[in-house]
Design a protein around this nucleic acid. Structure first.
Lengths: 246, 246
DNA sequence: CGTAGACTTGAGAGTCATCAACGTAAGTGG
DNA sequence: CCACTTACGTTGATGACTCTCAAGTCTACG
């Protein structure tokens, strides 16, 4: 696992202009010529394997990262030595936004499965954005959207509401990415979901069992099938941030 | 209360270049000439009185707002019709960041006492920022800082830890603004603090009583004196976002 | 085949919400 | 000036939800 560090600095030029995730990670309406400007600064990190680090808490902030394939989790270690999960990141999503202000990364980011990410050097990105109003407002919107999501996540809900909201959210993000919205493969252990939702692994397990007994979902280890998305959504009771992607 | 709506559109030009809150709400290191550019777009809203609205959920997003004097709270109404408080805002702090993405305001914002705010038209601000790298990175940092704060706020803590963290946070924000860090005047009712911390007013009341009986604070209605900031901070157990202001 | 980690299930305990009663302060109108 | 109202704040009793601890099952992997 440790020699994974060698992967860290392997950088391969990637082309945003040919990337299928364009629509997800970049603002809409950029011209071909705009994309070519991005091509000149973006590079690729990885491939990472499960457990490999993309970032460590304390690393100086130089770049944002966009998930290219696979998935990552971000977390900190609290003073009791336990992992606190901040988020799970799917292809097209931007990581490292919380590092802009302190100018160093707050979170560790590790791959949950085989995964790759795009390295977006922030100073250069910001400079290009100053010339491209669309990219500029896109960056602001991504930050604003993440802010509103975090705020929503901190809401006051029961264990079942939170878990239902988590499943519904995951389902809709997978759908946006062209995956099935019914059949979810959880790439993280129960303990990580629990940490993310401020619950325990036991509570996750019991709530999943209850959902299954009610016919809302079927559970086979980490394969979850959403049998009744409508009812599950009602159970989530959460005003999701309906609407457009960045 | 209703004719306060007339105040809403009263706009008075304000000068950032002469504002004592410059250091708090703007990035450092802007030149005098930069500030003059801001002077041309910033206007003033208010004065508002307790309970007056600065913004209503659903309003189209056109501007960010900076608190100029007094304080505001932002909140939404959940499906049970109850207020959910998202934040309390002191002079120099920026409001409305969560509205950039959806292009409409998510929160209601009302004055907690007599208060005024600066109106910062976002398109113009963004355009000026594209020419001023310092202002540009300042905007990104404010967003990033708010993101990290929201993330921290969602942490998993007991009622007393949350309340202690709230008091310590308020104290340090007041100190930055030249107020006493020991003597706090709470401009909001217990119920609002409770909502903000995902607790109930009764729990706030009991926890304050316990802090007082332990000699950490003294409580006289809404006047709180922090008698032992060090011990209170330890009680908060939270990794505050130590460090620089935007 | 054996071990380690993930997951499930059960029993008991603790924290905080809920419900209720009461005290207090501020504002209103007689 | 004083009853009256209303909102806020405190305190107590009860109960629910979820955590903790514990035991046991299953899976993957060497």
């Amino acid at each position: 696992m440790f020699h994974a560090g060698t992967d860290f600095h392997r950088e391969i030029r990637q082309k945003c202009s040919q990337c299928s995730l364009q629509e997800l990670c970049l603002p809409r309406g950029l011209h071909a010529s705009d994309l070519e400007q991005l091509d000149t600064v973006v590079s690729c990190e990885g491939p990472h394997h499960e457990g490999d680090f993309l970032l460590r808490a304390g690393d100086p902030f130089r770049s944002l990262y966009a998930v290219r394939s696979g998935s990552y989790k971000s977390y900190t270690i609290d003073q009791d030595g336990r992992e606190q999960i901040w988020g799970f990141h799917l292809p097209g999503e931007i990581m490292g936004l919380d590092a802009i202000h302190p100018e160093r990364h707050i979170c560790n980011v590790v791959a949950l499965d085989t995964a790759t990410a795009c390295n977006l050097p922030f100073d250069q990105l910001s400079a290009i954005a100053s010339r491209l109003p669309g990219l500029r407002s896109g960056l602001f919107k991504i930050l604003s959207k993440n802010l509103a999501q975090q705020t929503l996540r901190s809401r006051d809900e029961t264990a079942e509401e939170r878990l239902a909201a988590f499943l519904v959210d995951l389902s809709s993000r997978l759908r946006e990415r062209g995956f099935s919205e019914r059949d979810l493969h959880l790439s993280m252990p129960r303990r990580d979901i629990a940490s993310y939702l401020h619950l325990t692994a036991e509570t996750i397990s019991r709530s999943l069992a209850r959902f299954q007994s009610e016919g809302l979902i079927s559970v086979d280890h980490r394969e979850i099938r959403l049998l009744d998305l409508a009812r599950l959504t009602k159970r989530a009771r959460s005003e999701t941030l309906a609407g457009a992607t960045p």
